[in-house]
Simulated scan of single mutants.
Amino acid sequence: MARKCAVCGKGVAVGMKVSHSHIRTKKTWAPNLQRVKAIVDGAPRRVMVCTRCLRSGKVQRAI
């Protein structure tokens, strides 16, 4: 399963980690994804959703 939000599409961000001596190495920042049961197309499904979408109410959770 991809590390991408099913609602907003937020995914992994890539950048450089820079040390004090300016040695640069690749670094990734992963979104805070939660596996929740949500209503998708009228049926409950398990989807990966970022916590920002959960908090803002963009996801209707299923019981």
Rank of each mutant, 00 (worst) to 15 (best):
S19T: 15
Q60L: 11
R61E: 13
I23P: 01
A6K: 00
V12A: 11
R3T: 03
Q60K: 14
K37D: 09
R35I: 15
H22G: 07
V40M: 12
R24Q: 06
C53I: 03
G9D: 06
R46F: 14
C8L: 04
R52H: 04
T28H: 11
V12H: 08
N32L: 07
G42Q: 04
R55L: 08
L54C: 06
P44W: 04
R52D: 09
V47Y: 02
Q34R: 14
I39V: 15
A62F: 06
G9E: 07
R35L: 11
K17G: 12
G15T: 05
V40H: 13
V49P: 00
A38M: 08
K26S: 03
S56I: 04
C5R: 04
T25L: 04
A6P: 00
R52P: 01
G57S: 06
L33C: 13
C50V: 02
Q60C: 09
I63T: 07
K17I: 08
A30K: 15
A30G: 08
A62C: 08
K26Y: 07
N32T: 05
T51H: 03
P31D: 12
P31E: 09
S56R: 07
R55E: 10
K37V: 13
V49Q: 01
V59A: 00
H22M: 11
K26V: 05
V14S: 10
R3L: 03
V49M: 06
K4W: 03
L33T: 09
P44I: 01
V14Q: 08
S19A: 15
S21C: 08
G11H: 02
R46C: 10
V36H: 02
S56N: 11
W29I: 15
G42H: 01
K4Y: 06
A2T: 09
T51R: 03
H20N: 05
R52T: 12
R46L: 12
A30P: 06
M16C: 08
V18E: 14
P31H: 04
T51Y: 00
L54V: 06
V59N: 00
K37R: 13
C53E: 04
L33F: 09
A13F: 07
V7P: 00
K4F: 06
R61Y: 04
M48K: 13
V59L: 02
S21F: 09
C5T: 05
S21K: 15
A62L: 08
K4G: 12
I39C: 13
T25D: 11
Q34F: 02
A62H: 10
V14T: 15
R61V: 10
V18L: 09
T25K: 12
I39A: 10
T28D: 09
K10A: 10
K4D: 07
M1H: 13
S56G: 07
P31M: 03
R3M: 02
